[in-house]
């Protein structure tokens, strides 16, 4: 496959998708490569509003890259990404679609939240400050409103008594729950979960997953989740996408994918993961 230059115009129509009301995330022919290593090969997929979609697949198959592209932590090398009908990686200049500038990225990025594998809480701030920092600085919320919302979120994730604690005083599971509250404080339309339990001790995993199940069932947030927790994926997902070598090789409901996978590669992967567990 030939590489596609980031400055090249995407081969799509000048208009965003017309059926954007039914699509929250849309990938059209997305290519991502690091040097000669092509991680995503003309990837097409979409996610509906409120849907919980889980990405599974072997390491290096491009799952995390998809989340990083959506969070604008990486730039696409080809194709386009839309969030709720608005281009993320590109923008209009006149009637031409060009690579997005920082101002456009910031505008669209506000609608997306991300929870990282390593939590990435700010160690120089306490729990409350971690959660209120962005709502105050980015959304312009009054401090009292931001703090009230942060305390509600901390209660929701079961850490109401940890308001003044610093991240270093919390366990990994508690830090991850604070990170979830921090992402939710921005009231995102899309929440990206990047192997949120991979860095946790096994006994702390359930607490984090229960919080996420609760959020998924009580909000209309669209979730895109990368995980190796197959039980969780089966319980909470509306759809599961199996990735291999930068492409989706199977897209099915969790019941179907985990019980009767169609693709041999999916069967191999599930066997390997379940045997390891």
């Amino acid at each position: 496959m030939s590489s596609i230059d980031a400055t090249e115009e995407p081969e799509v129509g000048a208009e965003a998708t017309d059926d954007s009301a039914n699509v929250m995330i849309q990938f059209d022919g997305v290519v991502k490569q690091f040097g000669d290593n092509v991680v995503l090969r003309e990837l097409d997929f979409s996610v509906s509003p409120g849907e919980f979609v889980t990405l599974i697949g072997p390491s290096g198959s491009g799952k995390t890259t998809i989340l990083r592209l959506l969070m604008t932590l990486e730039k696409v090398n080809g194709g386009t990404i839309q969030v709720d009908g608005e281009y993320l990686s590109h923008m209009y200049r006149g009637d031409k679609l060009v690579p997005a500038d920082e101002k456009h990225l910031t505008k669209v990025r506000k609608r997306i939240g991300m929870v990282f594998q390593q939590f990435n809480l700010f160690p120089n701030m306490n729990v409350l400050q971690n959660i209120t920092e962005a709502p105050i600085r980015v959304l312009g919320l009054p401090k009292s409103d931001a703090e009230e919302r942060a305390k509600d979120l901390l209660d929701m994730v079961g850490l109401g008594e940890k308001v003044t604690a610093h991240p270093t005083q919390l366990s990994g599971g508690q830090q991850q729950r604070v990170a979830i509250a921090r992402a939710l404080a921005m009231r995102p339309d899309v929440l990206l979960l990047d192997e949120v339990t991979s860095a946790l001790d096994p006994e702390l995993v359930a607490g984090v997953l229960n919080v996420l199940k609760e959020i998924a069932s009580t909000t209309d947030i669209t979730f895109l989740c990368v995980t190796h927790e197959m039980g969780f994926a089966k319980d909470v997902s509306d759809r599961v996408l199996m990735f291999d070598q930068g492409q989706i090789i199977e897209d099915a409901s969790p019941d179907k994918l985990f019980t009767e996978p169609e693709h041999e590669r999916t069967r191999e992967f599930l066997h390997a993961v379940i045997d390891r567990a």
Partner: peptide, 23 residues
């Protein structure tokens, strides 16, 4: 400072100046 701190700031849409001064 770990790269993840920059990424978390970006994910929260913090302005560049605030990322420097606050994080």
């Amino acid at each position: 400072v770990p790269k993840g701190q920059w990424e978390a700031s970006t994910a929260l849409s913090l302005p560049r100046r605030r990322t420097w001064t606050g994080v």
